[in-house]
């Protein structure tokens, strides 16, 4: 009886140890066998990286395999990071902060763009301001920048999430719900937002570029601590892609149109709303993400006693830049 209990506890401990283990297999000489990157339609830089094979070229000679996984939103990218399904994930800065505040072991190491990728969108002519949303249904994807943008827009006009009915839908479904009239407004995200604007004549009734937090590339802390030089190399590959986007805006739009299966004109609208001039995270990003963090705190999404500034400082790490 005693020995069977001992076996039972050993089995439990083994299970807990496995739970804490990394999914990333180590190769010889302290280098990873495989690096898993995400790509997302809201991150044109990641699409260029995937299309042009910059990462593969960089790691081929070292015998490191590169794998790409699609993220449909910041919530998914951060979920993948949390579950160790990817090593690098693309998200909005505010969404990364929310994950970090909840204990996700991640670091923001790179800025893939400064986008105006979200706005409040309506198709109904009676909705022209944030105040018009009171008591109405609004679609948004929880845990993403558009959702946080909606919260900030409401707070800016003296309202809160309790004053509207937020319907949780993934970005593409939110666009569909807006077009079918099931919600009066949608906290949009490009390229879906650019598509409904161009093809369905939707109205971006509330815009504020400063309420959009930066597009951030996040790495699992465990990966970064284990392979710091490979974080630098991934940044190097991203820098190539970013420079390529600056030099080839037309082709970047074509890559986006092909990947996201959208019209080229829609892709051009999205690319036009992205500023690729900044890539190293610094004070500007810290300020923008901290401001978003205060709203998250007010809405109860982050614990009231959380030190937002400290969490942001722990999140942003620019030391991997050469």
């Amino acid at each position: 009886m005693k020995s069977s209990f001992t076996r039972f506890f050993i089995l439990l401990l083994a299970l807990f140890t496995i739970t804490g283990c990394s999914s990333n297999a180590s190769g010889a000489n302290g280098k990873p066998k495989k690096i898993i990157l995400d790509y997302a339609y809201y991150s044109p830089t990641s699409l260029i990286l995937k299309e042009k094979g910059f990462a593969e070229d960089l790691f081929k000679k070292e015998g490191i395999e590169v794998e790409f996984v699609l993220s449909q939103g910041s919530n998914k990218a951060l979920e993948f990071l949390n579950s160790k399904s990817v090593d690098f994930g693309s998200s909005a800065g505010a969404a990364a902060l929310l994950a970090k505040a909840k204990g996700s072991p991640i670091q923001t190491v790179y800025i893939f763009s400064k986008p105006e990728w979200t706005a409040l969108v309506s198709k109904d002519s009676s909705i022209n301001s944030v105040e018009d949303l009171k008591g109405k249904k609004v679609a948004a994807t929880l845990g993403t920048d558009p959702y946080i943008f909606l919260l900030r827009a409401l707070e800016d006009k003296g309202l809160s999430a309790k004053d509207v009915e937020i319907i949780n839908l993934q970005h593409a479904d939110g666009a569909a719900a807006l077009l079918s009239g099931e919600v009066v407004a949608w906290a949009g995200l490009d390229p879906h937002m650019a598509r409904v604007e161009k093809e369905a004549g939707a109205n971006l009734f509330f815009r504020n570029p400063d309420f959009n937090t930066y597009g951030t590339l996040n790495v699992r802390t465990e990966f970064a601590e284990k392979y710091p030089e490979y974080v630098t190399k991934v940044i190097e590959a991203y820098e190539k892609a970013r420079q390529w986007a600056i030099d080839h805006p037309e082709e970047t739009a074509e890559i986006l149109a092909k990947e996201a299966q959208i019209d080229i004109e829609v892709a051009k609208i999205q690319i036009g709303r992205n500023d690729f001039s900044t890539s190293k995270p610094g004070d500007e990003q810290i300020a923008a993400i901290t401001a978003a963090g205060d709203v998250l705190k007010n809405e109860g999404l982050v614990e009231g006693n959380a030190d937002i500034e400290k969490i942001v400082r722990d999140l942003i790490n620019s030391s991997y830049f050469k």
């Binding site: 979920e79 994950a99 909840k102 929880l142 319907i167 839908l169």
Partner: peptide, 19 residues
Amino acid sequence: MGASKGLGYLLVVGQNTYS
């Protein structure tokens, strides 16, 4: 599928807010 209330919605909130 697009709820704003319910235990299933609560489950999705937990998933999307890393809780």
